[in-house]
Design a protein around this nucleic acid. Structure first.
Lengths: 347, 347
DNA sequence: TTGTAGGCGTTATCAT
DNA sequence: ATGATAACGCCTACAA
């Protein structure tokens, strides 16, 4: 472990007897460098173990080959897949990823965004983040490219990648209706989020169309978290005339609801059906087996990164939103609301 | 969205009528700057919206305030908690985090490590990563501080943060023994990992001490993944004289095993008990309710980052390994191996 | 207490 | 085809 001094391009120049700029040209593949010279340069660079400093390069080129990614919380199963999608293309594009957890906290988000700008990220991907408040708007409008994912602004036009908040959800409601449910509860996401509002809207429309109970009490205002699911569980199971099926706007939510329902001695799906939204990888486990609406998170992440790269390379006006389809995955938490019965397993 | 030009320290100097270096001194809180001058500088900096370029600073100071974090896969529930722990202290230390997924692939790990070095990270945290092969060793020995987590080298002395692979595990085995299990199966982790080897060793010792079946067939060589758990499930449930309790070296493993067991129509824990290791957040769900050995992942991540910061500030010889305790969390997947019975719930 | 000048390691421009 | 030189934006001796 000899603490060798860092070898710079200067060292390569010296060792190869060439000018610094020639070495740079050779290394960055300029076509007017003599083949022989290039060979020599490559060789000595390799021999000395030279690696270009990304920092110096970033300063000079005003391009850091780094993108920032904002998520609520890595430790939340539904965040991570998005990140994977982003990383897939980041690697391909020789970019690295600065990942920040914001915990849905606006102040924290602002801080993180500032840090990202300080680092001169070439762009950033905001997954389910705040995007309306003046301070955040000011940051966004600074000129650095960005793409919003899963939450967009109604007041502003931004590049956006999201999921269809109609089709899959409507399908789920029809599924519940077809099973015979007439009282279907809905757990909303945080209503400052566009996706949450869109989902709620779809729920209202479709449940009205199918003549499901329109009672206000069937709607619980929540967030996309497990804890919020617990609260929803307490709310719905405590009702006099409780829903026979609960539709949650996220899987974490659904799991929270199930937790309480099971603790209350309710059987799923015999006593109450549950439908999630997201399809986190664990939803498919035999012991959970959650009927849910699938989001293509990794694909969304990749699409967002792809779009971001395009904007980084060539700034352009905001294009059409990219909306990925969703679909219902029927598993074991939904069944007919027959008292004391229904099939125990959806498969 | 006026694409304003970036404001540099020069602009602040000009606007405040002071010299560039004075501004720099004022901003970086040198104590020999007149209070009045500092006020002026702060004021104009704020007015112009000046933010120091982290890139330029990194180049000049040879310190990027960035640390690299290598994990197997963010989308794996057990990776994310570590990351959270690292981030907790990174933020406090005004560092940002470059996160890389290696998928346990050595080639990929090498690539990522090189990128990290190119970016001049101040240090890096390697969570369950390769640390023995010559090429990786060469990278590690380049002089940049690093801390290994959950996997260490037997041949080399490195800074290390890990979990106690004896106590919690031994406790689990005693638990199984106390319930009456005599045939306890064990699913190992990847044996190139030190933690996996340590766990296997503990299993062998403790199961010998308690006179559990010492049949070779009780040990399945796996990895820390869900898929590997599936394989283990197929292996164990297919045996003539199968174990009455299976101890997995990770929760993902355990879930995979449970998946197959349930598909085979086995009831858990009546027909077969299962114990995991990790305590991922979903393990506590009513519908999973996995008895498991808890790892303090977030704490480990934080401890590793803390140690790394110390090394960055002042390089020093490798210290004592930091080993965090583990403990058994008894939930519902373990019970006595009484045919057709046992209590259905561990609580 | 403030100002001047040099350099961190690149790439880009312009001669040669 | 190659080479000298000037930035990029900041920090830090050292000089005033």
């Amino acid at each position: 472990m000899v603490e060798r001094k860092k070898v710079t391009i200067k060292d390569v120049a010296k060792a190869s007897g060439l000018a610094l700029s020639t070495v740079s040209n050779a290394l960055s593949g300029k076509n007017y460098v003599k083949e022989e010279t290039r060979k020599l340069v490559d060789e000595t660079a390799r021999k000395l173990g030279y690696r270009a400093s990304a920092v110096a390069r970033a300063l000079r080129m005003q391009r850091s080959f780094t993108i920032g990614v904002l998520i609520a919380d890595v430790a939340n199963p539904s965040s991570a897949d998005f990140v994977r999608g982003v990383e897939d293309v980041a690697i391909r594009e020789k970019c690295t990823m600065l990942l920040c957890n914001t915990d849905e906290d606006e102040e924290r988000q602002i801080l993180q965004m500032q840090t990202l700008y300080d680092r001169q990220v070439d762009g950033m991907v905001l997954i389910s983040q705040h995007c309306e408040s003046p301070r955040i708007r000011a940051l966004l409008d600074g000129g650095t490219p960005y793409v919003l994912v899963q939450r967009r602004s109604s007041k502003w036009k931004d590049d956006y990648v999201g999921s269809d908040n109609q089709e899959g959800l409507a399908e789920a409601i029809r599924h519940a209706h077809a099973l015979g449910h007439r009282r279907v509860g809905f757990v909303t996401g945080p209503l400052e989020s566009s996706s949450a509002r869109e989902r709620l809207e779809t729920f209202k429309q479709e449940s009205a169309r199918l003549k499901l109970s329109q009672s206000k009490s069937m709607i619980f205002e929540g967030r996309y978290t497990f804890d919020s699911g617990l609260a929803a569980g307490k709310y719905f199971t405590g009702m006099k005339n409780r829903p026979t099926c609960v539709l949650a706007s996220s899987d974490m939510n659904a799991l929270g609801f199930m937790q309480v329902a099971l603790e209350e001695g309710l059987r799923i799906p015999q006593d109450v059906s549950v439908i999630g939204l997201d399809d986190i990888s664990l939803a498919g486990l035999k012991s959970i087996n959650l009927t849910t609406i699938q989001l293509q998170k990794r694909d969304m992440g990749a699409a967002a990164a792809e779009l971001l790269m395009k904007r980084i390379r060539k700034p352009a006006k905001v294009g059409k939103p990219i909306i990925l389809p969703t679909r219902l995955i029927i598993r074991g938490t939904t069944a007919s609301p027959v008292a004391g019965g229904g099939k125990p397993d959806g498969n």
